[in-house]
Design a protein around this nucleic acid. Structure first.
Length: 433
RNA sequence: UCCGGCAUAGCUCAACGGUAGAGCAUCCGGCUGUUAACCGGAGGGUUACAGGUUCGAAUCCUGUUGCCGGAGCCA
């Protein structure tokens, strides 16, 4: 007798099979019990008639509580009355672990505050499980595309001696008596590794101790940061549009049903994500804002969420905004030739109000410019001697970007908040469970 | 950190100055086709906390805490 998973149930219609999983829901009809089983791959209705089971097994079926783990055997058959079209006619049942009564999460509406407190159980629900599966697919697509395009995975340290960018707040810790910080970016390190390997990327957790409290912020999130030697801003945009399109196409190919059925995602919006993406200079973007609902938007300011949403709304696919004001961006950005007030940076704004999912640009090769920026940003030059070495010994034009995994998952899945994109989100003042 | 809102049974909510309630969940009973089943019964509360106003406060006022939404900042 084969032990099957629910995903492959249709292939076993007419056969006697074994299935193990958790009780998602039970309907007690007396001498007839409906047991809806969840096994991590799907959901299947099983039905136990008293006459078909050993008396002890049927008695156990009558006592099943929500989320009890069970092992059942029976005949799998097509039945239009069952959700999903297939049903398991139980002929024996074994309780593996009887769940205590009053499982907190019911098949009804709950508040998000309550669900986050129960996150360790909430992830069992089909919708949450589907999101985590899609996240895993996105991670795989990211690695597959980069690995297939000559990038070498070089992971960078999480414990770091100083700020990478100097702007955001860092989580501090003690490193054998000296202060250390949790990394907020691996980029600076990969500016070093590209001189050894050409094209590299790091992909791991990133920490920002910002007091940010919005639907697009986590204090711990994952970021993939590709970096390329001999690459310009224009090169990076071409890479980004190919890369993002591949990620979206992979999810559509593997999870269309989950997107439509469980997440109620409008997949036509995702199907539009094909290269090339529209390109807008910061100057043009500001002009659009001023001609639109933000006539007083001052040139030089960074965009807020409403501005990003307005710009992104005008296109059916992600849009690049490049050549931001130098003052609004990180210290390592290369200047635009002849216009030092703007820099060779580029952000990628996702459609449908999801905002910036990628930030990137061309890094400066000028030690003089870096030394000036350290002073302007209040950074200690001594912390960055190694970074200056990269300019002293064979500097090349180089560029890269960082893609926020959780924002990308939220966008592709059509979620209202990034907290559902990771199993155990870390948010402002929230670290349980 | 700032602005706004909310806090009543395990959950989702009602009661809005006059005896604290419902649905779901739980427990007991019934039912051979349920789809968040249905029917009958039971238990379940320091109305977030502290103070104040009042004959009387879940309700009005002040403070605290927590949560939700948004902003700034960022990916």
């Amino acid at each position: 007798m084969p032990t099957i998973t629910i995903r492959e149930a249709a292939d076993h219609a007419g056969q006697v099979v074994r299935l193990q999983g958790w009780v998602h829901h039970r309907t007690d009809k007396g001498r007839l019990q409906f047991v809806v089983v969840r096994d991590g791959t799907g959901i299947l209705q099983a039905v136990a008639f008293e006459k078909d089971l050993p008396p002890a097994a049927f008695a156990a079926a009558r006592e099943l509580t929500q989320e009890s783990s069970i092992r059942i055997t029976g005949t799998l058959r097509a039945d239009a009355r069952a959700p999903g079209g297939y049903e398991l006619g139980i002929d024996d049942l074994e309780v593996v672990g009887l769940a205590e009564p009053e499982y907190p999460i019911q098949p009804k509406e709950h508040g998000v505050g309550f669900l986050m407190e129960q996150r360790h159980l909430w992830i069992r629900t089909p919708r949450q499980a589907a999101i985590l599966r899609i996240r895993a697919t996105i991670v795989r697509a990211i690695r597959a595309w980069l690995d297939g395009h000559g990038f070498v995975n070089v992971d960078t340290p999480i414990l770091t001696p100083a700020a990478c960018e100097g702007t955001s707040t860092l989580f501090g810790t003690d490193y054998f008596g000296t202060p250390a910080f949790l990394s907020q970016s691996g980029q600076l390190y990969n500016e070093a590794t590209i001189a050894a390997l050409g094209k590299t990327y790091c992909f791991g957790p990133t920490f920002r101790a910002e007091k940010s409290k919005t639907r697009r912020h986590l204090t711990e999130f994952w970021m993939v940061e590709p970096e390329m030697a001999f690459a310009t801003l224009e090169d990076v945009m071409e890479v980004e549009e190919q890369f993002v399109s591949h990620i979206v196409a992979t999810v559509l190919a593997e999870h269309r049903d989950a997107l439509v059925d469980l997440l109620e995602r409008d997949v036509t919006a995702l199907e539009a994500v094909q290269p090339p993406f529209p390109r807008l200079s910061y100057d043009e973007a500001v002009a659009r804002l001023q001609d639109g609902p933000f006539p007083d938007f001052p040139w030089g300011e960074d965009f807020g969420a409403p501005h990003e949403s307005y710009l992104a709304e005008q296109f059916d696919r992600p849009v690049f905004v490049y050549h931001y004001p130098t003052a609004a961006k990180a210290f390592y950005m290369e200047e635009v030739a002849g216009r030092p007030e703007v820099c060779r940076s580029v952000d990628l704004l996702a459609p449908e109000g999801y905002g910036e999912i990628i930030g990137g640009g061309q890094r400066t090769t000028s030690t003089a410019l870096l030394e000036r920026r350290f002073a302007e940003h209040g950074l200690s030059r001594a912390d960055y001697e190694w970074y200056l070495d990269l300019r002293r010994f064979g500097a090349v034009p180089h560029s890269g970007f960082g893609l926020g995994l959780e924002r990308t998952v939220a966008w592709i899945c059509g979620l209202q908040h990034v907290r559902e994109t990771t199993a155990f989100p870390r948010m402002l003042e929230k670290i349980y469970p």
